[in-house]
Design a binder for these strands. Structure first.
Lengths: 103, 103
DNA sequence: TTTATATGCAACATTTTTGTTGCATATTGA
DNA sequence: TCAATATGCAACAAAAATGTTGCATATAAA
């Protein structure tokens, strides 16, 4: 998974509307239902959903006239994994620094 | 911490150059050093660093004519925490769904 | 078969984000 | 002191992201 892919996932998470949508999706919801109460048009919501879908954080499936979106927990785990990698790097760097000071 | 703040942290993570900079920062580095080898100008790098700083993922300190950037591990932990929250919500939703099906 | 509902598509306008270039300023080192 | 180094600032240009409006289409319900 390249740094560009990682960035696209974080970028998808980088908008308050999209974070709200991830909260609302949970176990599946249609676009109209997801749009309810949000301050932008349904079409704008659709775009946000497509951004999340492109980042593979959610998946879309059409049932009749409705499109249901479901979460992709695996992708979220990956994102956590990447944050862990960086955190670990920083920890190690800090450890090296301390070691250096003590000598 | 509002959803807007969370989004700003993820948005800051949502660029391959900035992920690369986070890799390179580790235990502190100057702008010139961080820019070395990257395909954009020093001024562009400075902007990326300011984005990371605004999201509180890194901190800047001036020593003489150099500006040293250091990582803020606490902020990264917060980001992981938020991903966990969403992941847990999804897990619970999935559990409710399974429960529902079995009945 | 009508009507209402749920979406999709596409053209536009705005706003934001990225990057560049040019120039100024503060430190360091010879 | 003079030259090299490390940045900061600001004006511009280009590209990408957001949102809106208007209209078309497919499905479900009466």
């Amino acid at each position: 998974m390249s740094k560009i892919d990682r960035a696209s996932v974080f970028a998808a998470l980088g908008d308050p509307i999209r974070l709200e949508l991830l909260d609302r999706i949970e176990d599946g919801a249609s676009i109209t239902k997801l749009s309810d109460g949000l301050p932008i048009t349904r079409q704008a919501i659709t775009r946000h959903l497509r951004v999340l879908e492109a980042a593979e954080l959610i998946e879309a499936q059409r049932y009749g006239r409705e499109t249901q979106f479901t979460a992709n927990p695996a992708r979220l785990s990956q994102a956590k994994g990447w944050l862990d990698e960086v955190a670990q790097q920083w920890d190690q760097a800090l450890a090296r620094f301390k070691d250096h000071v003590e000598k």
